[in-house]
Design a binder for these strands. Structure first.
Length: 144
DNA sequence: GCCAACGTTGGC
DNA sequence: GCCAACGTTGGC
């Protein structure tokens, strides 16, 4: 199983919004690298939910429940082909203690995260070691 | 509000 | 195919 991190601006769509929905299509991604990361996801993969701009912290964990499929909000290209795809997710665990970007940057083991190195990438990978440490820092007794 | 980083577009 | 110009993201 793989781990990921997905960003959203909480004034547009927050973790609380996710908790209030049975399932959410992660639409709106219009970046090829981020899209490729979603296409690499498998059902059952887990992802951190990061609040960008406001909060700048990891607030929870969500689970992938449907593999990449056409983004219902995206137009087709001139040839009529699907370009933008996305996965479906459900909320999984809210972190007792959100982990801020400042804390991540100040933690040597996390300084190489895609979140830090590729700050504009909205869907990126998380390593097993990073995942375990972040879960611990977020106040979870056991990493899911 | 500013700026750095990065992606995309368009002229050549 | 290169590169300048421009737009967008996201941290500060």
């Amino acid at each position: 199983m793989a781990y990921w991190l997905m960003k959203s601006e909480p004034n547009v769509f927050s973790y609380t919004d996710l908790e209030n929905k049975p399932v959410e299509e992660w639409h709106g991604v219009r970046n090829f690298t981020a899209r490729n990361n979603m296409k690499a996801m498998k059902v059952g993969d887990l992802a951190f939910f990061y609040h960008s701009n406001i909060g700048k912290e990891i607030v929870g964990i969500m689970k992938v429940v449907a593999p990449a499929h056409p983004d219902s909000t995206a137009e087709l290209n001139d040839k009529g082909n699907v370009v933008w795809e996305c996965v479906d997710v459900v909320h999984h665990t809210k972190l007792p203690k959100p982990v801020t970007l400042a804390t991540i940057k100040a933690t040597p083991e996390l300084a190489n995260m895609a979140l830090v190195k590729l700050s504009r990438l909205s869907v990126g990978p998380v390593t097993d070691a990073e995942w375990k440490l972040l879960c611990q820092m977020g106040g979870l007794k056991k990493a899911p």
